[in-house]
Computed example of a mutant assay.
Amino acid sequence: MSSAARNSKTAYAYLGPAGTFTELALRQVAAAAGQEWKPVLTVADALAAVLAGKAQRAIIPVESSVEGGVGATLDALATTEGLQIYGEYLVPVNFNLVAKPGVKLSDVKTIAAHPVAYAQVRKWLSANVKGHKHLHSTSNAAAASDLWENAKLDAAVSTPNITDHYMVKVLAKNIADNKHAETRFIEVGKKGALPKRTGHDKTSLIVELPNDRPGALLEMLEQFATRGVNLSRIESRPVGDRLGRYRFNVDANGHATDEAVAEAVQGLYRFSPKLIFLGSYP
């Protein structure tokens, strides 16, 4: 492929390496098919790539049905200017136990797993691989890769798509303790035109309260309630400058061009000393 052809492609930064749940989210982005996919190590790296023009969009996790909001993403969105959300993608979170060819389940004594993944499959492993030892891996994909790096490892907890990237066999499928777990990912780019209203939209905001006084949070919520705007998520994160100061990450049902949502946002601009509008998207 010529350099000109590569340069004509749109770049998408995502949390790598290949084989992660973030890659599964990226597969859902219709416009990303056939484009350049750039694996990065952290949320900060993904957003930095967007701001530097090295990637047009970043796909990053924002919320887990098991663990709640992803702090690294929420904090980065609150402290990094010039970003906008253009879409969201839900990925079912399940895990397989994989090993090198020739290994049987009865052979498994030492297992590689990312700590978060291990916590979500512990019950299954305790029941089916009794007395096993757990070694930490840096990601779900790295757990599979570690099988070739560490001779002490017998198996790894990894993602359903890991067999697309590594020569491993599946010893057991769907071993997550919570069979309905999901992670929500967002597509982030530089600020630009809002996606068109679809009728099934979400508007994301970050709101700081004006001061620490009784009723301040209620006053913020009334901006939505009095206009009939439903909130699908509200989550607090510390501002970080001192104890007791929090900002609120809010997802409201509706598009910024909807009259009720637009009025609520304008009310928040009058109320809050710092309001970050992150966009409206399907």
Rank of each mutant, 00 (worst) to 15 (best):
V62P: 07
T10Y: 03
G131W: 01
G69M: 12
Y281N: 08
A264H: 01
A58Q: 04
L125S: 04
N178T: 13
T183E: 14
T79W: 00
G87I: 04
H136V: 14
D107Q: 03
Y166P: 07
Y118D: 00
D154C: 04
D241Y: 11
L278I: 14
Y86G: 10
L26C: 02
A49R: 03
F271V: 00
G215M: 04
R184K: 14
E63F: 15
D164S: 10
Y12S: 01
Y12E: 00
A112K: 07
E208A: 15
A225G: 12
I206S: 08
I162P: 02
R227K: 15
K191G: 01
H134S: 07
P282K: 12
A55H: 02
S139F: 07
T22Y: 01
S137F: 02
D177T: 01
L171Q: 06
D45V: 09
T198K: 10
T73Y: 01
L24M: 15
A216D: 05
H255Y: 10
A113L: 13
A176R: 01
L171F: 03
T79C: 05
E149W: 02
L205H: 08
L278C: 12
V239E: 14
G34Q: 05
K191M: 09
A260N: 15
L26Q: 03
A49E: 13
D212A: 11
A5C: 00
Q84L: 08
L83S: 04
G102D: 09
V168K: 04
A172T: 13
V43L: 03
I206T: 13
A112E: 00
Q223T: 11
K274W: 06
A141P: 01
N140V: 11
Q120G: 01
R233V: 09
P238V: 06
L26G: 03
L24I: 14
D212Q: 12
N230I: 03
H255R: 02
A99W: 06
K38M: 15
N211A: 14
G34W: 06
D107E: 08
H136M: 11
F271S: 03
D201L: 06
P39K: 06
A33N: 11
Q56F: 05
T159P: 04
H134E: 11
D258E: 13
I206D: 04
K191C: 03
K123G: 04
N211R: 13
L268M: 09
A49N: 09
L125F: 05
T159S: 11
S126K: 12
L97H: 02
L231D: 05
K123M: 05
H180K: 15
D146P: 02
E149L: 15
L135M: 14
A143H: 08
Q35V: 05
L231C: 10
R233T: 09
E259R: 13
G69A: 15
K202Q: 13
E259D: 15
L153M: 10
V121I: 10
N94G: 08
Q28E: 14
K274I: 01
A156E: 00
A52D: 11
A172D: 11
N230H: 12
I60Q: 03
L125K: 03
K9S: 09
K169T: 15
Y89D: 02
G279M: 07
A216L: 03
A260P: 02
A11H: 10
A193W: 03
A141K: 06
D45C: 08
R6Q: 08
S272H: 05
L153D: 04
A18Y: 12
P101D: 09
G131P: 08
P61F: 07
